[in-house]
Design a protein around this nucleic acid. Structure first.
Length: 328
DNA sequence: AATTAATACAACCGCGTCAAA
DNA sequence: GTTTGACGCGGTTGTATTAAT
Protein backbone atom coordinates (compact mmCIF):
# COMPACT_ATOMS: atom_id res chain seq x y z
CA UNK A 1 0.00 0.00 0.00
CA UNK A 2 1.40 3.32 -0.99
CA UNK A 3 1.81 6.17 1.41
CA UNK A 4 -1.04 8.64 1.38
CA UNK A 5 -0.16 12.18 0.58
CA UNK A 6 -0.59 14.90 3.14
CA UNK A 7 -4.15 16.08 3.62
CA UNK A 8 -5.86 13.01 2.31
CA UNK A 9 -8.44 12.98 5.11
CA UNK A 10 -9.92 16.35 4.38
CA UNK A 11 -10.18 18.29 1.20
CA UNK A 12 -7.30 20.69 1.73
CA UNK A 13 -6.20 23.51 -0.48
CA UNK A 14 -3.27 22.93 -2.81
CA UNK A 15 -1.34 25.04 -5.23
CA UNK A 16 -0.19 28.59 -4.96
CA UNK A 17 -0.65 30.48 -1.74
CA UNK A 18 -2.87 33.54 -1.66
CA UNK A 19 -1.72 36.75 0.10
CA UNK A 20 -4.44 36.10 2.66
CA UNK A 21 -3.06 32.68 3.49
CA UNK A 22 0.45 34.09 3.72
CA UNK A 23 -0.79 36.73 6.10
CA UNK A 24 -2.50 34.16 8.33
CA UNK A 25 0.55 31.92 8.47
CA UNK A 26 2.97 34.76 9.01
CA UNK A 27 0.84 36.24 11.78
CA UNK A 28 0.45 32.91 13.53
CA UNK A 29 4.12 31.90 13.44
CA UNK A 30 5.34 35.35 14.36
CA UNK A 31 3.14 35.25 17.43
CA UNK A 32 3.35 31.61 18.49
CA UNK A 33 6.23 30.03 16.63
CA UNK A 34 5.54 27.02 14.46
CA UNK A 35 5.73 24.34 17.15
CA UNK A 36 4.25 21.16 15.75
CA UNK A 37 3.76 21.79 12.05
CA UNK A 38 0.84 19.40 11.77
CA UNK A 39 -1.18 21.56 14.14
CA UNK A 40 -0.20 24.88 12.58
CA UNK A 41 -2.83 24.97 9.81
CA UNK A 42 -5.69 24.35 12.21
CA UNK A 43 -4.48 26.91 14.73
CA UNK A 44 -3.69 29.47 12.05
CA UNK A 45 -7.04 28.96 10.34
CA UNK A 46 -5.67 27.56 7.13
CA UNK A 47 -7.03 24.79 4.94
CA UNK A 48 -3.59 23.45 4.21
CA UNK A 49 -1.58 20.51 5.45
CA UNK A 50 1.24 21.13 7.92
CA UNK A 51 3.78 20.10 5.37
CA UNK A 52 2.61 22.74 2.97
CA UNK A 53 2.72 25.38 5.73
CA UNK A 54 6.23 24.39 6.67
CA UNK A 55 7.41 24.64 3.09
CA UNK A 56 5.78 28.01 2.60
CA UNK A 57 7.40 29.35 5.76
CA UNK A 58 10.85 27.97 5.02
CA UNK A 59 10.95 28.93 1.36
CA UNK A 60 9.04 32.18 1.29
CA UNK A 61 7.82 33.75 4.51
CA UNK A 62 10.80 33.35 6.80
CA UNK A 63 12.02 36.86 7.73
CA UNK A 64 15.70 36.04 7.38
CA UNK A 65 15.43 35.16 3.71
CA UNK A 66 17.59 37.06 1.30
CA UNK A 67 15.57 38.25 -1.66
CA UNK A 68 16.79 38.90 -5.15
CA UNK A 69 19.12 37.17 -7.55
CA UNK A 70 22.24 35.27 -6.68
CA UNK A 71 25.54 37.10 -6.82
CA UNK A 72 28.39 35.62 -8.83
CA UNK A 73 30.19 34.85 -5.57
CA UNK A 74 27.17 32.90 -4.39
CA UNK A 75 27.00 31.03 -7.69
CA UNK A 76 30.68 30.15 -7.51
CA UNK A 77 30.29 28.96 -3.97
CA UNK A 78 27.35 26.77 -4.98
CA UNK A 79 29.37 25.24 -7.80
CA UNK A 80 32.24 24.55 -5.45
CA UNK A 81 30.08 23.11 -2.71
CA UNK A 82 28.11 21.01 -5.17
CA UNK A 83 31.33 19.47 -6.42
CA UNK A 84 32.08 18.28 -2.90
CA UNK A 85 28.68 17.69 -1.37
CA UNK A 86 26.76 16.62 -4.45
CA UNK A 87 23.06 17.39 -4.53
CA UNK A 88 22.79 17.86 -0.80
CA UNK A 89 20.98 21.12 -1.23
CA UNK A 90 20.14 21.59 2.41
CA UNK A 91 23.80 21.31 3.37
CA UNK A 92 24.75 23.71 0.61
CA UNK A 93 22.02 26.10 1.72
CA UNK A 94 23.35 25.97 5.27
CA UNK A 95 26.51 27.65 3.97
CA UNK A 96 24.62 30.38 2.15
CA UNK A 97 22.84 32.54 4.71
CA UNK A 98 19.40 33.64 3.63
CA UNK A 99 19.12 31.12 0.82
CA UNK A 100 16.93 28.04 0.82
CA UNK A 101 17.69 24.58 -0.46
CA UNK A 102 14.79 24.87 -2.89
CA UNK A 103 16.10 28.13 -4.26
CA UNK A 104 19.59 26.73 -4.73
CA UNK A 105 18.27 23.55 -6.28
CA UNK A 106 16.20 25.57 -8.75
CA UNK A 107 19.14 27.77 -9.60
CA UNK A 108 21.30 24.75 -10.17
CA UNK A 109 18.81 22.98 -12.40
CA UNK A 110 17.73 26.02 -14.37
CA UNK A 111 20.89 28.03 -14.69
CA UNK A 112 24.19 26.75 -13.33
CA UNK A 113 23.89 23.32 -14.91
CA UNK A 114 23.44 24.88 -18.31
CA UNK A 115 26.28 27.32 -17.83
CA UNK A 116 28.62 24.49 -16.93
CA UNK A 117 27.54 22.50 -19.95
CA UNK A 118 27.96 25.50 -22.23
CA UNK A 119 31.52 25.76 -21.00
CA UNK A 120 32.02 22.14 -21.97
CA UNK A 121 31.93 20.83 -18.43
CA UNK A 122 29.99 17.98 -17.00
CA UNK A 123 27.72 19.29 -14.21
CA UNK A 124 27.75 15.88 -12.54
CA UNK A 125 31.49 15.47 -12.32
CA UNK A 126 32.66 19.09 -12.69
CA UNK A 127 35.17 17.87 -15.22
CA UNK A 128 35.51 18.52 -18.93
CA UNK A 129 32.84 16.59 -20.74
CA UNK A 130 35.34 14.48 -22.67
CA UNK A 131 37.03 13.33 -19.49
CA UNK A 132 33.74 12.65 -17.78
CA UNK A 133 32.63 10.48 -20.68
CA UNK A 134 35.88 8.56 -20.54
CA UNK A 135 35.34 7.76 -16.91
CA UNK A 136 31.76 6.67 -17.38
CA UNK A 137 32.41 4.51 -20.38
CA UNK A 138 33.64 1.65 -18.25
CA UNK A 139 30.99 1.98 -15.59
CA UNK A 140 28.04 4.16 -16.55
CA UNK A 141 26.47 4.10 -13.10
CA UNK A 142 29.61 5.23 -11.42
CA UNK A 143 29.64 8.80 -12.60
CA UNK A 144 26.14 9.42 -11.39
CA UNK A 145 27.06 8.00 -8.04
CA UNK A 146 30.38 9.69 -7.74
CA UNK A 147 29.10 12.89 -6.22
CA UNK A 148 26.86 10.98 -3.90
CA UNK A 149 29.70 9.84 -1.75
CA UNK A 150 31.03 12.97 -0.16
CA UNK A 151 31.79 13.12 3.51
CA UNK A 152 31.51 16.33 5.39
CA UNK A 153 33.66 16.83 8.44
CA UNK A 154 33.26 19.88 10.55
CA UNK A 155 35.83 20.58 13.16
CA UNK A 156 34.70 22.09 16.39
CA UNK A 157 35.98 25.55 16.84
CA UNK A 158 36.16 25.46 20.60
CA UNK A 159 37.80 22.12 20.95
CA UNK A 160 41.35 21.66 21.95
CA UNK A 161 41.57 18.57 19.78
CA UNK A 162 40.30 18.07 16.28
CA UNK A 163 36.88 16.60 16.69
CA UNK A 164 33.69 16.15 14.82
CA UNK A 165 30.45 18.00 14.60
CA UNK A 166 28.92 16.30 11.67
CA UNK A 167 29.72 13.43 9.44
CA UNK A 168 27.42 12.34 6.75
CA UNK A 169 27.90 9.88 4.02
CA UNK A 170 25.39 8.92 1.48
CA UNK A 171 24.20 5.76 -0.01
CA UNK A 172 24.03 4.41 -3.45
CA UNK A 173 20.80 3.10 -4.87
CA UNK A 174 20.96 -0.09 -2.84
CA UNK A 175 21.53 1.83 0.35
CA UNK A 176 25.06 0.52 0.65
CA UNK A 177 27.78 2.71 1.91
CA UNK A 178 30.64 3.03 -0.49
CA UNK A 179 33.07 3.79 2.25
CA UNK A 180 32.32 0.56 3.92
CA UNK A 181 33.09 -1.27 0.74
CA UNK A 182 36.32 0.66 0.45
CA UNK A 183 37.25 -0.22 3.93
CA UNK A 184 36.75 -3.91 3.62
CA UNK A 185 38.41 -4.11 0.25
CA UNK A 186 41.69 -2.82 1.59
CA UNK A 187 41.48 -2.87 5.32
CA UNK A 188 44.90 -4.34 5.73
CA UNK A 189 46.32 -1.18 4.20
CA UNK A 190 44.80 1.31 6.57
CA UNK A 191 47.60 2.63 8.69
CA UNK A 192 48.20 6.27 9.36
CA UNK A 193 50.99 7.83 7.39
CA UNK A 194 51.90 4.61 5.71
CA UNK A 195 53.47 5.17 2.34
CA UNK A 196 52.36 3.35 -0.70
CA UNK A 197 54.61 2.67 -3.64
CA UNK A 198 53.60 4.87 -6.51
CA UNK A 199 52.67 1.98 -8.70
CA UNK A 200 49.93 1.07 -6.27
CA UNK A 201 47.91 3.99 -7.51
CA UNK A 202 45.49 3.01 -10.20
CA UNK A 203 45.63 5.02 -13.37
CA UNK A 204 43.26 7.91 -13.82
CA UNK A 205 41.25 6.06 -16.41
CA UNK A 206 40.18 3.58 -13.79
CA UNK A 207 39.09 6.51 -11.70
CA UNK A 208 38.86 4.71 -8.39
CA UNK A 209 37.94 7.87 -6.61
CA UNK A 210 34.65 7.25 -4.92
CA UNK A 211 34.50 9.81 -2.25
CA UNK A 212 35.75 13.12 -1.07
CA UNK A 213 36.38 14.33 2.41
CA UNK A 214 35.66 17.94 3.01
CA UNK A 215 37.38 19.45 5.99
CA UNK A 216 36.14 22.74 7.17
CA UNK A 217 38.68 24.78 9.05
CA UNK A 218 37.17 27.47 11.19
CA UNK A 219 40.52 29.15 11.33
CA UNK A 220 40.69 32.86 11.18
CA UNK A 221 43.74 34.65 9.93
CA UNK A 222 44.98 31.63 8.07
CA UNK A 223 45.70 32.22 4.44
CA UNK A 224 45.99 29.81 1.54
CA UNK A 225 49.71 29.71 1.52
CA UNK A 226 49.78 28.82 5.20
CA UNK A 227 47.70 25.73 4.62
CA UNK A 228 49.15 23.09 2.41
CA UNK A 229 47.81 19.72 1.56
CA UNK A 230 50.04 16.86 0.83
CA UNK A 231 50.23 13.16 0.55
CA UNK A 232 53.40 11.21 0.96
CA UNK A 233 55.33 14.42 1.15
CA UNK A 234 53.95 15.79 -2.08
CA UNK A 235 52.75 19.33 -1.84
CA UNK A 236 49.51 20.29 -3.44
CA UNK A 237 48.66 23.59 -4.91
CA UNK A 238 45.20 24.94 -4.18
CA UNK A 239 42.78 24.56 -7.04
CA UNK A 240 45.29 22.69 -9.14
CA UNK A 241 43.63 20.61 -11.79
CA UNK A 242 45.23 17.24 -12.26
CA UNK A 243 45.32 15.31 -15.46
CA UNK A 244 46.26 11.86 -16.62
CA UNK A 245 49.97 12.69 -16.45
CA UNK A 246 49.77 13.76 -12.84
CA UNK A 247 51.82 11.37 -10.71
CA UNK A 248 49.10 11.07 -8.09
CA UNK A 249 45.84 11.05 -10.00
CA UNK A 250 43.72 10.57 -6.94
CA UNK A 251 43.78 14.28 -6.30
CA UNK A 252 41.97 15.31 -9.41
CA UNK A 253 39.09 16.63 -7.34
CA UNK A 254 40.90 18.32 -4.52
CA UNK A 255 40.21 21.91 -3.90
CA UNK A 256 41.03 24.49 -1.39
CA UNK A 257 39.39 27.80 -1.00
CA UNK A 258 38.73 30.53 1.48
CA UNK A 259 35.17 31.59 1.93
CA UNK A 260 33.63 34.77 3.13
CA UNK A 261 32.82 33.41 6.57
CA UNK A 262 36.44 33.24 7.66
CA UNK A 263 36.58 29.53 7.13
CA UNK A 264 38.77 27.56 4.85
CA UNK A 265 37.42 24.55 3.08
CA UNK A 266 39.67 21.79 1.94
CA UNK A 267 38.21 19.02 -0.11
CA UNK A 268 40.33 15.96 -0.51
CA UNK A 269 39.46 12.63 -1.96
CA UNK A 270 39.45 9.46 -0.01
CA UNK A 271 41.33 6.87 -1.91
CA UNK A 272 39.55 3.51 -1.91
CA UNK A 273 42.89 1.82 -1.54
CA UNK A 274 43.21 3.43 1.83
CA UNK A 275 45.73 6.17 1.39
CA UNK A 276 46.05 8.85 3.98
CA UNK A 277 46.00 12.52 3.33
CA UNK A 278 47.91 14.97 5.42
CA UNK A 279 47.27 18.59 6.05
CA UNK A 280 50.03 20.87 7.19
CA UNK A 281 49.56 24.40 8.24
CA UNK A 282 51.56 27.22 9.57
CA UNK A 283 49.88 28.41 12.71
CA UNK A 284 52.60 30.77 13.75
CA UNK A 285 50.56 33.76 12.63
CA UNK A 286 47.21 32.51 13.86
CA UNK A 287 46.01 34.52 16.77
CA UNK A 288 43.86 32.85 19.35
CA UNK A 289 43.14 29.71 17.41
CA UNK A 290 46.21 27.70 18.05
CA UNK A 291 44.58 25.58 20.67
CA UNK A 292 42.58 23.35 18.47
CA UNK A 293 45.42 22.57 16.16
CA UNK A 294 48.22 22.22 18.63
CA UNK A 295 50.31 20.18 16.32
CA UNK A 296 50.83 21.38 12.83
CA UNK A 297 49.84 18.26 11.04
CA UNK A 298 47.17 15.68 11.15
CA UNK A 299 46.02 13.03 8.79
CA UNK A 300 42.88 11.15 8.28
CA UNK A 301 41.75 7.99 6.67
CA UNK A 302 39.62 4.97 7.12
CA UNK A 303 40.40 3.08 10.25
CA UNK A 304 41.25 -0.56 10.26
CA UNK A 305 38.55 -1.92 12.49
CA UNK A 306 39.79 -5.46 12.22
CA UNK A 307 37.24 -6.21 9.54
CA UNK A 308 34.28 -5.44 11.73
CA UNK A 309 31.21 -4.02 10.11
CA UNK A 310 31.34 -0.92 12.26
CA UNK A 311 31.81 2.07 10.05
CA UNK A 312 34.37 4.23 11.70
CA UNK A 313 36.42 7.05 10.40
CA UNK A 314 39.37 8.17 12.45
CA UNK A 315 41.10 11.47 12.63
CA UNK A 316 44.70 11.15 13.61
CA UNK A 317 46.60 14.05 14.99
CA UNK A 318 50.36 14.05 14.93
CA UNK A 319 50.61 13.10 18.58
CA UNK A 320 48.77 9.89 17.75
CA UNK A 321 45.63 10.95 19.54
CA UNK A 322 42.74 9.50 17.61
CA UNK A 323 39.24 10.84 17.33
CA UNK A 324 36.67 8.29 16.33
CA UNK A 325 33.89 9.33 14.06
CA UNK A 326 30.95 7.16 13.31
CA UNK A 327 28.32 7.57 10.71
CA UNK A 328 25.09 5.84 10.09
C1' DA B 1 -1.88 40.95 -31.33
C1' DA B 2 -1.81 36.06 -30.84
C1' DT B 3 0.58 31.98 -30.21
C1' DT B 4 4.34 29.14 -28.82
C1' DA B 5 8.61 28.19 -26.45
C1' DA B 6 11.72 28.96 -22.85
C1' DT B 7 12.72 30.17 -18.30
C1' DA B 8 12.25 30.90 -13.37
C1' DC B 9 10.07 30.01 -9.45
C1' DA B 10 6.82 27.70 -6.31
C1' DA B 11 4.82 23.76 -4.57
C1' DC B 12 3.95 18.82 -4.36
C1' DC B 13 5.19 14.00 -3.73
C1' DG B 14 7.44 10.06 -2.06
C1' DC B 15 10.84 8.34 0.71
C1' DG B 16 14.05 7.93 4.71
C1' DT B 17 14.92 8.87 9.46
C1' DC B 18 13.84 9.42 14.09
C1' DA B 19 11.44 9.42 18.32
C1' DA B 20 7.51 8.33 21.01
C1' DA B 21 3.91 5.14 22.04
C1' DG C 1 10.77 -5.14 18.72
C1' DT C 2 7.06 -3.00 16.15
C1' DT C 3 4.11 0.62 14.76
C1' DT C 4 2.97 5.24 13.93
C1' DG C 5 3.33 10.00 13.02
C1' DA C 6 6.14 14.11 12.30
C1' DC C 7 9.73 16.08 10.00
C1' DG C 8 13.21 16.95 6.51
C1' DC C 9 15.19 16.13 2.07
C1' DG C 10 15.66 15.73 -2.89
C1' DG C 11 13.40 14.88 -7.23
C1' DT C 12 9.72 16.18 -9.97
C1' DT C 13 5.84 18.68 -11.61
C1' DG C 14 2.99 22.75 -12.10
C1' DT C 15 2.37 27.60 -12.96
C1' DA C 16 3.47 32.35 -14.00
C1' DT C 17 6.23 35.29 -16.59
C1' DT C 18 9.07 36.63 -20.38
C1' DA C 19 10.97 36.16 -24.97
C1' DA C 20 10.63 34.82 -29.61
C1' DT C 21 8.10 34.05 -33.78
Amino acid sequence: MGRRSCGYKQKLRKGLWSPDEDEKLLRYITKHGHGCWSSVPKLAGLERCGKSCRLRWINYLRPDLKRGGFSSQEENLIIQLQSVLGNRWSQIAARLPGRTDNEIKNLWNSSIKKKLMQKGGDPNTHKPLSEAMLSTSTCPEKASRELDTAISLNLKEDSSKPSLIDVSSCRNEKGDDNLNASKTSAHQEFFPNKSFPMNRYPSIQQRPLDSIACLQFPVQNLSHDQLKLDQKGILFEPNKEFNSRTPVPTFSRSFLSAQTDNKIYAGLPFHPMGTFNNIHWDSSNCSGNKSFFDSNVFSWGLADGGGSSDKTLQLHSADAETTDIKWS
